[in-house]
């Protein structure tokens, strides 16, 4: 479904990703963990097409297509959704208008008919229940004046309406208290499906108690230095990121070998 091969990327000529390899199959949940500055968020943003990052090498294939050749909006319409670490406030654009523009762009791209106002509202209201969002949020400007928890719930709402094939959650747990975390995780879990995959980027293991991953990868200095099952996350929680340095040396040796 998603195949990343030796992906390298930099920002302002500073290399951030130094060779990422990752294979995500339909229905899988992959957690990407790692200390600050390891490149987790860069990976998420490069996959979504943020132009601030320059891809300097490697390939990303998405359902057999060259993902890196697609504009951000094309990636979204092809089923990739990035839940932002810092959702952007857009004064003057209402949530409902954004959802409508986004959903219609996708339906049009897929050659399907746009939803009429009635069906659209019915769909949105049903999905709002997933994240326990009150109706008046629909008519407020996108993320404007929202609390941290409300912004993250809004990301999950957008994901629920757009029904992507791959959801990338960029530190969706950051800044959330335990109640908000549960609401967000429940929303994500409700969206899990055999043909829908997730890449969950997080610093802490806590989120993975609620969104249980199939695979856990540890990222350090722009490389995946260790991969394993969900127990790897617990290991990391217990031992901290200190022992990563050793792994890195090992990975470095491998790379030189």
């Amino acid at each position: 479904m998603l195949t990343i091969k030796n992906l390298t990327a930099s920002i302002n000529d500073k290399p951030i990703l130094r060779g990422i390899d990752l294979e995500v199959r339909p229905g899988e949940v992959h957690a990407i963990m790692g200390p600050n500055g390891s490149g987790k968020s860069t990976l998420a943003n490069v996959l979504a097409g943020r132009e601030d990052y320059a891809v300097t090498g490697g390939e990303v294939s998405w359902q057999g297509r060259d993902l890196l050749a697609l504009a951000p909006e094309e990636r979204a319409r092809e089923g990739i959704f990035l839940a932002f670490q810092y959702p952007v406030e857009i004064p003057g654009v209402s949530n409902v208008n954004l959802l409508k523009a986004a959903l219609n762009a996708k339906l049009k791209h897929l050659g399907r008919e746009e939803l009429d106002a009635y069906d659209f509202l019915a769909l949105v209201k049903e999905r709002m229940k997933l994240v326990q969002m009150p109706e008046d949020f629909l008519y407020r400007a996108v993320n404007e004046g929202f609390s941290g928890g409300e912004k993250k719930r809004n990301e999950v709402l957008q994901m629920a309406v757009l029904e992507p094939l791959l959801g990338i959650l960029d530190e969706t747990d950051s800044g959330l208290d335990i109640d908000a975390l549960k609401i967000v995780a429940d929303g994500v879990n409700a969206l899990r499906a055999p043909d829908r995959s997730f890449v969950v980027v997080t610093h802490y293991q806590r989120l993975l108690d609620y969104i249980v991953p199939d695979h856990v990868h540890v990222l350090a200095h722009g490389r995946i230095v260790k991969s394993g099952g969900k127990e790897l996350a617990l290991d990391l929680e217990r031992r901290g990121y200190g022992w990563i340095a050793e792994l890195e040396r090992g990975a470095g040796d491998d790379a030189r070998a």
């Binding site: 943020r50 132009e51 951000p72 909006e73 406030e89 857009i90 954004l98 986004a102 959903l103 762009a105």
Partner: peptide, 16 residues
């Protein structure tokens, strides 16, 4: 940032 946010939701650049 707002422009990228909208595009990342599938809204074309001109419409965004």
């Amino acid at each position: 940032d707002a422009l990228f946010y909208l595009r990342a939701r599938g809204v074309g650049e001109a419409e965004a």
